[in-house]
């Protein structure tokens, strides 16, 4: 499989004003190449939840998108910390450590990671105090 499109984005620490801009660009990019709307929506939802997580739980981070020649889309969200102390709990619906700020934005109800996992075809998360890397993939519509 070869990469046909690669994009990189940066999410700056505490840049709440830009929340969602990366996911908007990802969605517009997929739309411009004629991606299946249902798969595109799943990607947009996962991307947006992950981007919000980077802002409300981490010190910002880097996002990459790779589109392969078979239509598979892989998104990687890599942040520099502080890490998720208990991953199992973080993946439990309703469990949250979010701040009041996050809740005021309409997030922080503990549904983010479970929802990302639900909509993606492949899901991997690695976390330590040095940071968290979330890798999610989506197969093209059949």
């Amino acid at each position: 499989m070869a990469v046909v499109l690669h994009k990189e984005y940066k999410v700056l620490r505490d840049d709440y004003g830009s929340a969602g801009k990366v996911s908007s660009d990802i969605k517009q990019t997929l739309n411009s190449i004629g991606f299946d709307p249902k798969v595109m929506r799943r990607i947009a939802v996962a991307s947006y939840e992950s981007e919000i997580n980077m802002l409300i739980h981490a010190f910002g981070g880097d996002i990459t998108m790779d589109i392969m020649d078979d239509g598979t889309v892989t998104l990687v969200f890599k942040d520099p910390g502080p890490g998720i102390p208990d991953l199992e709990k973080a993946l439990t619906p309703g469990w949250s450590t979010a701040s009041e700020k996050a809740r005021a934005m309409g997030f922080g109800a503990g549904m983010g990671l479970p929802n990302i996992q639900r909509v993606s075809d492949a899901f991997d998360i690695q976390s330590s105090e040095a940071g968290t890397t979330l890798t999610i993939s989506f197969r093209a519509a059949q």
């Binding site: 929340a19 969602g20 996911s23 947009a44 939802v45």
Partner: peptide, 9 residues
């Protein structure tokens, strides 16, 4: 803005 971003996604 998050309401609109959600709606957009």
């Amino acid at each position: 803005a998050q309401t609109l971003r959600t709606v957009e996604m």
